[in-house]
Design a protein around this nucleic acid. Structure first.
Length: 415
DNA sequence: TGTCCACTGGAAGGGAGGGCTT
DNA sequence: AAGCCCTCCCTTCCAGTGGACA
């Protein structure tokens, strides 16, 4: 009985303590508010480009670019939501799809996701890309629906080693359609990505361009106060805390996403502390917490072999803070793999994993030449060793590796 | 100036896991 | 069920490389 009572009361504390938020979802970055301050120019431009769709005319492909957290995705979703509503009223056959290319991963998955958003079911593997493309085209032809596709983080498509043929195919898909059409909205935060595009794709994709400049501190303040009104109880949020959020995010290239995260986490910290106000102290704590959480999320979701590579770099780093080289790291990695135990990958593959971890910022790898002593990569941890230890020690498969002293290291130091 | 080291990184191919067609 | 084709992840192979050293 008493257990039942305890369990029953488990969440009461939480429920009784929501003195801070009225609706914390408003502070999530996938939330599209009714009003997007300081983006009316971009909204109007995008809307004016897309407006002819309501009269079933094909519209230009559009390219939106600007740094992270400058409102590209929010503006695109905002305009498409309104367009969708209007299309229903005037009975225009228009569908919209939103795909995040980086999250989707491969060309195949992007196409498969695209098909799923319009209601065509595609297995997660087994089909040729060409076959998926055919089904996509057939559906569009049969349904006579026109489609506006948002390809967010489109640069992820180009940076991978595989080619950009999927973009080429999408830009040409209208050639196979009879009564309807498809328009693309590409979104990128990498201004240089266009240099890597196939010129044929580039000319079709960027028929229209909308640029998103970083928000200034004052603009961030306006955005935050708008959202804060909807998210927090009255008089909970101290104005100086709000200003600090805006100032910190403005320091990081005017990133509204960062500002919203700071505000939300600051609120949550205040809530857990059981106080009735969100003050500057909470914002500063939130800043540290967000950085820590980001690192631990990335580390804990790494594949097993990447974790072992990382622990190898960690162990080598405790001996020589100036960094290790590929050959040493690979020797340690092989020993650790046998401890786990898993079959070690080849040096070529490990070298690739090192590059991947470098791209994620978890390792710092730099190609160096030691003259007649060869050419290799100098590798250091890109995150704090404490974080690596803390996060990966929670993984049962690899936790013991931290206590292990690789024989290779002992041999090396005795030399 | 040529040699040589310890790799790097591109290319090709293998095989596991899967779907489609017959 | 068999044969074929696909993606994804990996291995194998190997030409290429920067720069210290003889």
């Amino acid at each position: 009985m008493s257990i039942g009572k305890t369990v029953d009361g488990l969440f009461d504390k939480f429920l009784s303590e929501t003195k801070i938020f009225t609706n914390r979802n408003v502070l999530r970055h996938d939330y599209v508010p009714d009003n997007l301050p300081h983006r009316s120019e971009q909204i109007e431009k995008l809307a004016s480009i897309l407006a002819p769709t309501l009269k079933l005319s094909k519209v230009s492909n559009i390219f939106l670019y600007g740094k992270t957290g400058t409102g590209k995705t929010a503006v695109a979703r905002f305009v498409l939501n309104h367009l969708g509503g209007k299309a229903k009223k005037v009975s225009a056959r228009i569908q919209t799809s939103y795909i995040n290319c980086r999250l989707a991963g491969t060309n195949y998955r992007i196409l498969a996701d695209l098909c799923r958003t319009i209601g065509v079911s595609i297995p997660f593997t087994g089909l040729a890309v060409g076959e998926v493309l055919n089904r996509f085209r057939n559906y569009l032809n049969a349904s006579k629906t026109s489609l506006i596709v948002v390809l967010d983080e489109i640069d992820a498509l180009i940076k991978r080693q595989d080619d950009d043929s999927i973009l080429y195919e999408l830009t040409r898909i209208n050639e196979g359609l009879r009564e309807n059409w498809t328009s693309l909205i590409g979104i990128s935060n990498d201004l240089h990505f266009k240099e890597f595009l196939d010129p044929r794709v580039l000319s079709t994709l960027s028929e229209e361009e909308v640029v998103f400049k970083p928000y200034l501190a004052d603009e961030l303040y306006d955005i935050l106060s708008d959202r804060a009104k909807a998210a927090f109880m009255k008089d909970v949020l101290v104005d100086s805390a709000l200003r600090l959020c805006a100032a910190l995010a403005a320091g990081e290239h005017g990133d509204a996403r960062r500002a919203l995260d700071l505000l939300r986490v600051a609120g949550e910290l205040a809530e857990r502390e059981g106080v009735n106000n969100v003050v500057e102290k909470h914002v500063k704590q939130a800043q540290n917490k967000i950085d820590r959480d980001r690192v631990s999320e990335v580390l804990s979701s790494l594949p097993l072999h990447s974790k072992i590579v990382l622990i190898s770099a960690y162990l080598l780093g405790t001996r020589s803070p100036e960094g290790s080289i590929t050959g040493d790291l690979f020797e340690v990695y092989k020993e650790l793999s046998n401890m786990v135990p898993v079959e070690p990958l080849t040096q070529r593959r490990v070298s690739g994993l090192i590059n991947e971890l470098d791209a994620m910022g978890i390792l710092n790898a730099r190609v160096v030449s030691f003259g007649r002593y060869g050419r290799t990569k100098k590798i250091r941890l890109g995150v704090s060793p404490t974080a690596v230890n803390e996060v990966l020690s929670e993984d049962r498969l690899v936790e013991n590796l931290f206590k292990y002293t690789p024989k290779y290291l002992a041999r090396k130091s005795s030399r």
